[in-house]
Nucleic acid binder design. Structure first.
Lengths: 170, 170
DNA sequence: AATTTATGTCAGCCTTGTTGACATTCCAAG
DNA sequence: CTTGGAATGTCAACAAGGCTGACATAAATT
């Protein structure tokens, strides 16, 4: 079911105007998307970078530092600053790898898991409300377009569900 | 047409797992979304903040500084730093308001328009490719979910198409 | 005439990214 | 067994781009 006015296969959704609207939608939506966690984090000594680290450690417990570097796409120096403060505050702990003892496997402590929960509860609440308002068909489309917007490498990581936890604890 | 396995109205798309996937999709997709302009801007003296300013000035020529502050959601000090460099480099010009001469109305110069074009061409190309791959139905869903994810005020601005250019030139 | 609004600007701070250099540990290949 | 390279940590320095606070100016509004 396409646009009746269109003789072709209705590529009207590809006009520059529509693309611009999509670009701006991404801009505004991303602001909303990050605003709740940002609000929680301000006042604490943490920022968005800590949120990301905590999220992906929760997501793939036992993931290595190198793995996290790949996922987050930052330098190790930048990540290290974040991880150090999370170690110091007892939110994350690193266990030396059993097979490869150079690797550090990262786990949330109880305290870290509590912060993760408070952040992701807020973010999930917004996402859930948006999903519910939009309905399952729209949600499927949402995910399809977002995946098509990723770089190949990002898409691979997204779809792979991060097989990052190769090793257990020592 | 919902999930046949579900006795309820199929709220299976609202599971925490699905919400998490959506959250991560936003994270990775936004990285892709900004990567092309970022690549162009690095090397030049500009960053993402300049891109945003240039985008919205192009979008609503004659918009005022205050208007831009509302849209971008930053402080005037932060925006001013960006605008000053754009003035100095001759990418943006400010004209004193005709009705209210306190206001500065912002316009892209030829040079500014050229930069805007190069940035938005890159970003549109990615968006077009994603749209084309996903198809019109998915795109509609994409936009619906993104709008539902915005704060009310952001949504208002998004839907209003920025009636920002209240005044002409002096 | 007094107040408010729109804008600009200075100074200083924070977070989070960057590069470069270097040390440590330790697996794996020769 | 030795050594090369991989994984990690750390120090220093820097930049972009947010922020707050304070103050200045011009113009509109009351």
């Amino acid at each position: 079911m396409v646009d009746a006015k269109s003789g072709d296969d209705s590529l009207l959704f590809l006009t520059d105007e529509n693309l611009r609207r999509g670009i701006e939608a991404m801009f505004f939506a991303y602001r909303g998307f990050t605003s709740d966690p940002d609000r929680i984090l301000q006042g604490l000594d943490y920022g968005r970078a800590h949120h990301r680290a905590v999220h992906f450690i929760h997501r793939a417990p036992g993931t290595t530092v190198g793995n996290l570097l790949d996922i987050l796409g930052v330098t190790k120096q930048s990540l290290n600053r974040v991880l150090r403060s999370l170690f110091d505050d007892g939110l994350v702990e690193a266990r030396v790898g059993r097979k490869d003892r150079r690797e550090r496997h990262l786990y949330l402590t109880e305290k870290g898991a509590a912060l993760e929960r408070s952040l992701s509860d807020a973010q999930r609440a917004r996402m859930r409300s948006a999903y519910r308002a939009a309905g399952p068909v729209a949600v499927a489309g949402f995910r399809t377009v977002l995946e098509a917007m990723m770089d190949a490498e990002q898409r691979r990581q997204y779809q792979a569900q991060y097989h990052g936890a190769k090793d257990g604890a020592p």
